[in-house]
Write a protein that binds this DNA or RNA. Structure first.
Length: 434
RNA sequence: GCGGCAUUAGCUCAGUCGGUAGAGCACUGGAUUGUGAUUCCAGGUGUCACCGGUUCGAUCCCGGUAUGUCGCCCCA
């Protein structure tokens, strides 16, 4: 009696072999790129205590208010959450293990799943994956610019530079933000009658977001609101100018977008997003900026910090298009065999060929030669090695090239590796390996 | 979380103005009992997403659920 199928959780997708191979290739490219800038990996758990994100991301952000997978551990009552982002866990780990004090400034990266309970769409899932970079202990605009410049290089390496554009803004220091925020609240309160429902709700929780409204009736009001630029001090202006100068000298095009705010509270000074018009409503493929106050806020010594996260699913959607069909990984050899003695011989022969450096799929599960040859062809292997009981008795093997013409040949098993290496790779090394 | 659209074979999709299902590819067997890809022949290709309602009868009409998708919100 067939059991009813249990399906996967909404918004949490399986990545099947065709895609997973593409992901692994992508991850290799990204890791090589990160190494070339001196970033080192860090891995943190997927579960954290809930207050970590409430204190860092911000109590009144969408993430904390309505998107966190938070639950009580029924065994001990702990309040836990599936991490919605990677920066806070990274900061926690760095503090907990005292990395900055013991080893100085840190350039770190991570890669893994994040969880947000949103309504799924293309390019937006409840479990999604991010590569993230965090740099701790660097004060100047050079590290901000390094992040942006290295990302521009990655887009070039991936062939995505035509699809992605850079938006840049500064949020000033926390004091300047606070002053601006007070002015904004005062301004909007004076015009409370013109605010829509959404703006009323955000008036005291997140007034910056009101500036993002798409409500046409509020455009004039928003246009005349106090500008953050009016509250920026000399140092903040100089920092922002420093970032822009480095970008111009690196020939990175960007657009300053004064409405670029970011949805997490910990950002200050430089913020940026790389956006695309190829993914519908999910425009942002990478976002980040400076968060100088976060380390102290989470209990460390004041430490400047800067970082970004990029969405692997969204980048893969863009990359697939520019990639075309990626070559699937295929074995060199598919080993066909029939008969008891031949099967045992083939089992040993497969190991011998792997010892020589070949990727070998040994046929399992019986079937006649015709059947096995079909599977050999479908596997994509370059060559089928064929063993029957008569070959086994003579310690020999037959082989047939599957991707080009040519007769089947039979030879002593000891010579097989060397012969195949010469045929498949046009190389012949002393020991016959490849 | 709100609104629109969609769900038919393993895959990509037709279709029935309510009368119990189609194409291509893939798959299986045979022509070939030790030989793939090519050719020929024969074929499963399915509770037409799930649950309920209307009806003599529902893949089709209606309601709900699940999932996807588009927009809003937000973000990666």
């Amino acid at each position: 009696m067939a059991q009813k199928l249990i399906h996967g959780v909404r918004g949490m997708h399986d990545i099947l072999p065709d895609d997973a191979e593409r992901w692994e290739l992508f991850e290799e490219i990204v890791r090589g790129w990160l190494r070339s800038y001196g970033y080192r990996p860090i891995r943190t758990p997927i579960l954290e205590f809930t207050p970590l994100f409430v204190r860092s991301v911000g109590e009144h952000t969408d993430i904390v208010e309505k998107e966190m997978y938070a639950f009580e551990d029924r065994l001990n009552g702990d309040s836990l959450v599936l991490r919605p982002e990677g920066t806070a866990p990274c900061v926690r780990a760095v503090l907990e293990h005292n990395l900055i004090n013991s080893s100085g400034p840190q350039r770190l990266y991570y890669n893994g799943p994040m969880f947000r309970h949103e309504r799924p769409q293309k390019g937006r899932q409840r479990q999604f994956h991010q590569f993230g970079v965090e740099a701790f202990g660097y004060t100047g605009p050079d590290i901000d610019a390094e992040h942006i410049v290295m990302l521009a290089r990655l887009w070039r390496d991936l062939g995505l530079e035509e699809d992605i554009t850079l938006e840049l803004n500064t949020l000033g220091s926390s004091d300047e933000r606070a002053a601006h925020r007070q002015a904004l609240i005062a301004y909007f309160e004076a015009h409370r009658d013109q605010l829509d429902e959404d703006a009323q709700r955000r008036l005291h929780s997140n007034p910056l977001r009101i500036l993002d409204t798409k409500n046409p009736a509020m455009q004039a009001l928003v246009e005349a609101a106090p500008k953050l630029a009016e509250f920026l001090g000399v140092e903040s202006l100089a920092h922002f100018e420093g970032v822009q100068t480095l970008l111009r000298e690196a020939a990175i095009p960007f657009r300053v977008n004064p409405r670029l705010v970011r949805g997490l509270d910990y950002y200050n000074r430089t913020v940026f997003e790389w956006v695309t018009d190829k993914l519908g409503a999910q425009a942002t493929v990478c976002g980040g900026g400076r968060y100088d106050g976060l380390v102290e806020q989470l209990g460390g010594k004041p430490t400047p910090a800067c970082g970004f996260g990029m969405g692997v699913e969204r980048l893969m959607l863009l990359w697939e298009v520019s990639q075309g069909d990626a070559a699937r990984s295929v074995p060199d050899v598919y080993l066909v065999h029939q008969g008891d003695a031949a099967s045992r011989f083939a089992f040993r022969l497969a190991e011998q060929l792997r010892e020589d450096g070949f990727a070998v799929v040994l046929h399992c599960g019986g079937g006649n030669f015709k059947n096995q040859m079909k599977k050999a062809d479908a596997s994509g292997a370059a060559v089928a090695v064929i063993v029957g009981d008569d070959e086994a008795a003579a310690e020999e093997a037959s082989f047939k090239l599957l991707r080009e013409g040519g007769e089947q040949r039979r030879l002593p098993a000891a010579q097989l590796g060397e012969t195949l290496a010469a045929l498949l790779y046009n190389v012949e090394e002393e020991d016959g390996s490849v």
